[in-house]
Design a binder for these strands. Structure first.
Length: 896
RNA sequence: GGGCGGGUAGCUCAGGUGGCUAGAGCGACAGCCUUACAAGCUGUAGGUCACAGGUUCAAGUCCUGUCCCGCCUACCA
C-alpha cells in the first residue's frame, strides 16, 4: 500500500530534488552541441541582496522558458550571476558602518573596498541559494559577478573601445548631484516626487531707482548664488529695467537685469532670479549671457564660502530658514504662497537632488541609440508586449548623453590615466608605460563607472568577451531577455546599445517585459515601501510550487499584476489536488500494475489497451488539445494562459470527470482506464513541470513512465524528459461526451434544486427523436451515469409520455424526466422550469432577431449563418418543450 | 503639456486578428465527511462589459468624444 499522506506537504519533497538535478548536471549547457541553442542571461541581482517578489516573478518566468525549451531538446543556457550594484550596496554598507560609529571617509578608500569584498564574500551565497530554493535551473558552473576579473576586463575593453571611437569624453556640465552620496547621477536615477512647498516672493531693489523687482522662487536660499535677474525681452512691464542693475538682498552684490526668452511672462511675477550654478535652466541662461556660475554649496550639501559669512557652514535646509527669516526682518519678503511641485530625489537614498556643475565622464549614446532604433525596426530585436516598442523608440530618439562616472569607490575605476607631468589623458587597459611628453608617472582616474555600464555588457561579458569564445559563437545573440518594464531604459536599452557598440550585434532577439507585482492599492510592491510579499515566507507557508503557480497564473499582459494571498492559496489547493489525484492513481496501480511491454507481447496484445473506450478517447483528445494550447502559450509568452489551461484540464476535466469514470471501470475490473489515467497524468506532469518543478518531479518519479516510451525511461528526471506531443483531437468522442455530460449535469441539477435526498435513487427517462443519439446514450449512459449520481433505472425512447409528478430538463431535442412522486415540490419545479423558460424565450428572440435580418444572411460568412440557424433551432425546441411542460404543470396543479 | 495602460460578477482578473448563450479563481448562498482530496464534492445566485455617439449584417472587442484611475515623460522658476 502506498503510504502517501493525504495532504501535500511541499517541505518534505522540495528539498531533495534540486540536489539531484544539480548532481546530474541537468542545468549545464555545452558550449558546443548539435542541439539548437537557447540562451537567457539572468538579470543579475545584487550580490548582497535577498530575493524579493520582483525577482521571484522574473526568475520563475525565466525558469519556465528554460525548462520548457530544455524538454523540447534545446541546448539551454541560463547564465546566472550577480551584480556589484554600486551605489545601493555602498549605501547599505555605510549604514552598517554608521552603527559602528564610523564613516566611509574615516575608513578610506582601500579599507572601505576591503570591507565591501569581505561583506560580498560573506553574503554572496545567500541570493544564489534563494534562487535555488525557487527552483531556478541556472547553469551554476558558469556563475559570474560583475567585478570578477573576466568581467572587469570586458569593462575596460569596452570603455577603451568606445573612447577610441570618440563616444566617451570628459565635460564640465550641470548634472544631478546627490549631496548624500556625494556623486553625480543620471537623469534616470532621479525620481520626481510631488511635495508641498512654497513660493517665496522676494523684492530685489533696482539700483539708482525707487523701483523694486519682485521675483518668485521655491528655493530662496539659492539667491545667495544669484548672478542675474531675467525678464522676458518683450515684457512691457519691465522694458525700462532691462540692462539696469539689481541689488541682491542679504549679499550686498550687484547683479544685472537681463532679457531672455526663456522667462514665462505669465508665470509667477514674470521676473526670474538666475542661479547658473544651481539650476538647469539658469545654467543655460547663464551660458547665453556669460554669467558667473557662483557655486554656494559644498558637495555634501553645506553652504560654502561664496555665500555671506553668516551663512557659511549651514546645512542647506537650515540656510533656507535663515534666509527667509532675514528677508522678512529686512522687509524683502513679500509673501509666501503654498505651492505643490515635483522635486527630484535620488532613487537610491531619497535625498533631494541638487543640480550642480562638475567635471564628469560622459558617453555620447546618440549614435548607438540610432543604431538600436534601426536594428529594432529591422526586426533584429522584438519587444513583447508590443507597446513597449514605442516607449523604447521614444526614449531612444530623445536620449541625452549618459554621465558614466560616479564619485564612488565600489565599482570599476575608469581605465583613464592622467600624466602627472603634462596632464595628458590616456585610456588604456593597463597603466601606460610612457607619456608622449616622456614622463612615466601616471595616476588613474579616481571615479568609478555607473553600475549600469558593466550590467550593460552582461550578455556578452559573461560569455568571455572580448575573447571570441565558443560560448559567444553558440549562444550570442541570446534568445530572450526577461525583465520588468521598469528597467527598460536603465538596463535593456543600454545592453542593446553596448551590444551594438562592442559587438555590432544586438544582445538578444526577444525582450519579454513582464508586469510588476502590485499590492491591493495598485502600488508596485517594493521593500522600501513595506508593502511587499516576502517570497521566502510565502514559500515556507505555501510551498515553492504553489507560489510559482500563483506567479505564473498572475502574469497577465497587464503592466501591473496583482497577487492577492488568495491566489497563492489557490496554488496550494491546486498542488494538493494534483497530489491526491496522483495518490489515487498510484494506490490503484498497486492492485492493477501497468503491464510491461514484455507482458503485452506475451499476451499477444497489439497494444497495451484492449480497446479505446469513449472516456479514454475523450481524455486523450482533451490532453492533446491541452498540449497544443500550453505549447502555444509558451511560444507566445502567454504565461497565464499556460497556467489556466493546465489548471482547467487537470482539475475540471481529468479529476472531475475522467477519474470518476476510471473509478467505476476499475471497480468493474477494467484497469485500462486506470493505466490511461497514469499515462495522462504522466504527460500532464511534464507539461506542468516548468511551472511546478518539484511536485511534478515527485509524482513523475513514482508514476510508471516506461511503457512504450522507452526514451523517457532511460532518463532519470522529468527535467530532462521530452515535451509531450499532441496526438490530435477526436471531435466525435468530444461531442458524444459533451452530450453525456449535459445529461449528467441536468440530472444533478434537478436533484440539487429539488432537494432530492442524497441517498435516494432516481429513475431517468430520456426522450429523443434521433435514433443515433438514442443509440449512443443507450451505449454509454448506463455505464457513466451511476458514477455521478444515484440512478435506479434508465429508460431511453423515441417518444414517451412525461411520467406524473416528474421533474424535467431539456437539452436541445432531448427531454429528461425524473419521476419524483413522493418528494417533488411542484411549486419549486414550476419556479425552476419557469426561470429556464424565460431565459429560453430571451435567447430565442435574440437569435431570431439576428436571423430575421436579410443583411445578416447575405453578408455574414456561411459558417456563421449555419451556426446561428442550428443554435436557433435548438433553442426553439428547448423553449417549446419548456412551455409545454409548464402548461402541463399548471394544469396538474389545478387538478390537485 | 505630451505619451501609454486601465475601467467586465461583491473582490482579483481572463476575454490575440469583431461572430459559440461574456468566463475563471476567491467570496456568497444551499446541500453533502460519496473509501484520491473538507486545502474536497454537488448545486445556485450574481454582469446595461465606465458613459455617449459612430463604423458594421454583427461591437466587451474597431473609431471618435466625455468622465474617472494608474503609470511614464517634460525646463514652468
Amino acid at each position: 500500500m502506498t503510504n502517501l499522506p493525504k495532504i501535500y506537504t511541499p517541505q518534505e519533497i522540495e528539498g531533495k530534488w534540486y540536489q539531484l538535478w544539480q548532481k546530474n548536471g541537468y542545468f549545464h549547457a555545452e558550449a558546443t552541441s548539435d542541439k539548437p541553442p537557447y540562451a537567457i542571461v539572468i538579470p543579475p541581482p545584487n550580490i548582497t541582496g535577498s530575493l524579493h517578489i520582483g525577482h521571484a516573478l522574473d526568475n520563475t518566468l525565466q525558469d519556465c522558458l528554460i525548462r520548457w525549451r530544455r524538454m523540447q531538446g534545446y541546448n539551454t543556457l541560463w547564465m546566472p550571476g550577480t551584480d556589484h550594484a554600486g551605489i545601493v550596496t555602498e549605501i547599505i554598507m555605510e549604514r552598517q558602518l554608521a552603527e559602528e560609529g564610523i564613516s566611509r571617509t574615516d575608513l578610506g578608500r582601500e579599507k572601505f573596498i576591503e570591507r565591501m569584498w569581505q561583506w560580498k564574500d560573506e553574503s554572496a551565497g545567500y541570493i544564489v541559494s534563494q534562487l535555488q530554493q525557487l527552483g531556478c535551473s541556472c547553469d551554476w558552473e558558469r556563475e559570474r559577478f560583475t567585478l570578477d576579473e573576466g568581467l572587469s576586463k570586458a569593462v575596460r575593453t569596452a570603455f577603451v573601445k568606445l573612447y577610441n571611437q570618440g563616444l566617451i569624453y570628459r565635460d564640465t556640465y550641470m548634472g544631478n548631484w546627490c549631496p548624500h552620496c556625494n556623486t553625480v547621477i543620471s537623469n534616470l536615477e532621479v525620481e520626481p516626487i510631488e511635495i508641498d512647498g512654497n513660493f517665496y516672493h522676494i523684492r530685489y531693489p533696482v539700483k539708482d531707482s525707487d523701483v523694486v523687482l519682485e521675483i518668485a522662487t521655491t528655493r530662496p536660499e539659492t539667491m545667495l548664488g544669484d548672478t542675474a535677474v531675467a525678464v522676458h525681452p518683450e515684457d512691457e512691464r519691465y522694458q525700462h529695467l532691462i540692462g539696469k542693475t539689481a541689488l541682491l538682498p542679504l549679499c550686498d552684490r550687484e547683479i544685472p537685469i537681463i532679457a531672455d526668452i526663456y522667462v514665462d511672462r505669465e508665470f509667477g511675477t514674470g521676473a526670474l532670479k538666475v542661479t547658473p550654478a544651481h539650476d538647469t535652466n539658469d545654467y543655460e541662461i547663464g551660458l547665453r549671457h556669460d554669467l558667473e556660475q557662483r557655486t554656494i554649496f559644498t558637495p555634501d550639501g553645506y553652504i560654502n564660502e561664496n555665500a555671506p559669512d553668516n551663512y557659511i557652514g549651514l546645512p542647506q535646509s537650515d540656510c533656507r530658514k535663515r534666509v527667509v527669516e532675514d528677508l522678512q526682518n529686512l522687509d524683502y519678503l513679500v509673501k509666501i504662497v503654498p505651492h505643490r511641485h515635483a522635486v527630484g530625489h535620488h532613487d537610491r537614498c531619497s535625498t533631494v537632488v541638487e543640480p550642480a556643475i562638475s567635471p564628469q565622464w560622459f558617453m555620447n549614446v546618440r549614435p548607438l541609440a540610432q543604431r538600436a532604433i534601426e536594428a529594432t525596426k529591422k526586426g533584429e530585436v522584438k519587444f513583447i508586449p508590443e507597446r513597449e516598442t514605442s516607449r523604447f523608440y521614444h526614449w531612444m530618439e530623445n536620449i541625452e548623453p549618459w554621465p558614466i562616472s560616479r564619485q564612488r569607490w565600489w565599482g570599476h575605476r575608469l581605465p583613464i590615466w592622467y600624466c602627472n607631468a603634462c596632464e595628458a589623458v590616456t585610456a588604456a587597459m593597463e597603466t601606460p608605460q610612457e607619456c608622449e611628453c616622456g614622463a612615466s608617472d601616471f595616476r588613474q582616474e579616481e571615479d568609478v563607472l555607473d553600475t549600469w555600464f558593466s550590467s550593460g555588457l552582461w550578455p556578452f561579458s559573461t560569455m568571455g568577451w572580448p575573447e571570441n569564445t565558443e560560448e559567444l559563437k553558440t549562444f550570442y545573440p541570446t534568445s530572450v531577455l526577461v525583465s520588468g518594464w521598469d528597467i527598460l531604459f536603465f538596463w535593456v536599452a543600454r545592453m542593446i546599445m553596448l551590444g551594438l557598440g562592442c559587438r555590432d550585434e544586438v544582445p538578444f532577439r526577444t525582450v519579454y517585459l513582464h508586469g510588476l507585482v502590485a499590492d491591493e492599492k495598485g502600488q508596485k510592491m517594493s521593500k522600501s515601501k513595506g508593502n511587499s510579499i516576502d517570497p521566502l515566507e510565502t514559500i515556507d507557508t505555501y510551498g515553492t510550487d504553489a507560489f510559482r503557480f500563483a506567479l505564473v497564473n498572475a502574469s497577465t499582459p497587464n503592466p501591473y499584476v496583482s497577487l492577492p494571498e488568495s491566489q497563492i492559496e489557490a496554488g496550494r489547493r491546486f498542488a494538493n489536488k494534483i497530489w491526491n489525484a496522483a495518490r489515487f492513481i498510484l494506490m490503484n496501480l498497486e492492485k492493477h500494475p501497468v503491464p510491461t511491454r514484455m507482458d503485452a507481447v506475451e499476451a499477444g496484445l497489439p497494444s497495451l489497451y484492449k480497446q479505446e473506450t469513449l472516456e479514454i478517447a475523450w481524455i486523450r483528445s482533451r490532453l492533446s488539445h491541452t498540449i497544443t494550447t500550453t505549447t502555444d502559450a509558451f511560444e507566445n509568452f502567454r504565461f497565464h494562459e499556460a497556467a489556466q489551461t493546465l489548471y482547467a484540464f487537470l482539475w475540471h476535466e481529468f479529476c472531475d470527470w475522467y477519474l470518476e469514470f476510471a473509478k467505476q471501470r476499475v471497480s468493474q475490473n477494467e484497469p485500462e482506464a486506470l493505466w490511461v489515467a497514469a499515462d495522462v497524468l504522466e504527460q500532464t506532469m511534464r507539461l506542468l513541470h516548468p511551472l511546478m518543478p518539484f511536485l511534478t518531479e515527485e509524482i513523475w518519479q513514482q508514476l510508471p513512465h516506461g511503457g512504450s516510451r522507452s526514451e523517457s525511461s532511460e532518463k532519470g528526471s522529468v527535467t530532462v524528459s521530452s515535451w509531450p506531443e499532441p496526438i490530435g483531437g477526436n471531435p466525435a468522442a468530444e461531442a458524444t461526451m459533451a452530450t453525456l455530460m449535459e445529461v449528467i449535469e441536468s440530472v444533478r441539477s434537478i436533484r440539487g434544486e429539488l432537494n432530492v435526498p442524497i441517498g435516494a435513487s432516481v429513475e431517468v427517462h430520456i426522450q429523443s427523436p434521433n435514433a443515433e443519439v438514442r443509440e449512443r446514450l443507450e451505449a454509454y449512459l448506463a455505464q457513466y451515469l451511476p458514477a455521478f449520481t444515484k440512478v435506479a433505472n434508465i429508460t431511453i425512447a423515441e417518444s414517451l409520455s412525461k411520467p406524473r409528478a416528474s421533474a424535467e430538463a431539456v437539452i436541445g431535442e432531448l427531454a429528461i424526466y425524473i419521476p419524483l412522486a413522493d418528494i417533488i415540490d411542484l411549486d419549486a419545479e414550476h419556479a425552476r422550469l419557469s426561470k429556464r423558460h424565460q431565459q429560453a424565450v430571451k435567447d430565442v428572440m435574440a437569435a431570431q432577431k439576428t436571423l430575421d435580418n436579410p443583411n445578416f444572411i447575405q453578408r455574414a460568412p456561411e459558417k456563421v449563418v449555419a451556426q446561428k440557424r442550428a443554435q436557433l433551432e435548438r433553442m426553439l425546441m428547448e423553449q417549446e418543450k419548456l412551455a409545454r411542460s409548464l402548461a402541463m404543470l399548471t394544469e396538474s396543479e389545478k387538478e390537485d
